[in-house]
């Protein structure tokens, strides 16, 4: 069976496409486009909302409601919205499929982005926030220079979890007629071509892994090491001596250096069910 998949994946015609069917490259592009649209819209709503709610500490219930959305079955939501919205769209081409599925994708992407942004801003150490105000930062300065940089890890985990959710659900959206990599799965199933079906599945998995990897890299580059706790080993090693010097010059009893262990400890989840707690993608 694996052979079928390899054959299908190795067939250049499947990549370039024919006059009637788009190639794999085009389907990947379509898949990414649907994902990007949903994330942009959801981000434009949930990100500012999460920041404002987190900053003011008000309307936490809204976050709980959004989280409640997560327990709805994604396929059910997708098909419900499709059945509801599709007859209202009289456009040509993809619009009758695209609009309802994008609404569903946005609805699925909202909760993780909102909840994590909210929690990220809420979880900024209150001392740091207090000190920022006490040193004369204005409200926007506190937000941009202190709260956001510290909220970034959670913001990113929300964004990544939303992205995976959207990529996964966009695959299922092929069932109601949308393009994208899901096409291969459902077309392959309908025409009993297992190679195409599993090949599509492999491509979806690879795409999800790749996108998540890219986001992880962006996260690495933007999140301060002081927050992520990734302190370079070399620096930590070199610090051993200077720490000893401090102990002597600054006196004794300041407790052990914590740098070495922190890198390991801060990678551990603080709470298993923090809002960032991963839900499997749809």
């Amino acid at each position: 069976m694996t052979d079928n998949v390899l054959v299908w994946l190795n067939d250049p015609q499947n990549w370039s496409g024919t006059r009637f069917t788009p190639g794999i490259g085009a389907q990947i592009a379509a898949h990414l486009l649907y994902t990007a649209i949903a994330l942009l819209v959801a981000g434009a709503i949930a990100f500012p909302l999460g920041i404002v709610l987190g900053h003011t500490g008000r309307a936490g219930w809204l976050v709980s409601v959004a989280n409640g959305l997560r327990s709805l079955p994604t396929v059910g939501l997708l098909i419900l919205l499709y059945v509801m919205v599709s007859p209202l769209i009289s456009g040509r081409g993809d619009a009758p499929y695209l609009v309802p599925t994008e609404i569903a994708l946005v609805l699925l992407a909202l909760p993780p982005i909102l909840a994590n942004t909210y929690a990220g801003v809420r979880n900024v150490p209150p001392d740091a926030r207090d000190a920022a105000r006490g040193m004369g930062m204005t409200g926007p300065q506190v937000l941009l220079r202190v709260e956001l940089p510290n909220a970034l890890p959670l913001v990113f985990s929300g964004l990544r979890s939303a992205t995976l959710q959207v990529i996964a659900t966009a695959t299922i959206a092929a069932y109601v007629g949308l393009d994208g990599l899901g096409r291969y799965v459902y077309d392959g199933l309908a025409s009993h071509q297992f190679g195409q079906m599993a090949g599509g599945a492999v491509l979806v998995a690879a795409l999800a892994l790749l996108v998540d990897l890219v986001l992880a890299l962006v996260q690495r580059l933007t999140v301060s090491r002081g927050v992520s706790g990734r302190f370079s080993r070399r620096a930590a090693g070199g610090d051993g001596r200077t720490a000893a010097v401090t102990e002597l010059t600054a006196g004794s009893g300041e407790g052990r250096e914590r740098g070495g262990n922190d890198a390991e400890d801060s990678s551990r989840p603080v709470a298993v069910l923090a809002p960032s707690g991963k839900h499997p993608p749809g």
Binding site: P125, D127, A128, R129, D130, A131, A132, R133, G134, M135, G136, M137, T138, R145, V146, P149, N150, V223, S224, G226, V227
Partner: peptide, 29 residues
């Protein structure tokens, strides 16, 4: 804000900014 920039402020747990280096913390104001 202007008043506060002219007054030093030290609190219980120091309230350092976790995302900034020690030097950047000190140089905040």
């Amino acid at each position: 804000t202007e008043l506060r920039r002219g007054i030093g402020y030290v609190i219980q747990h120091a309230g350092l900014f976790p995302h900034r280096t020690v030097a950047d913390n000190v140089a905040t104001v």
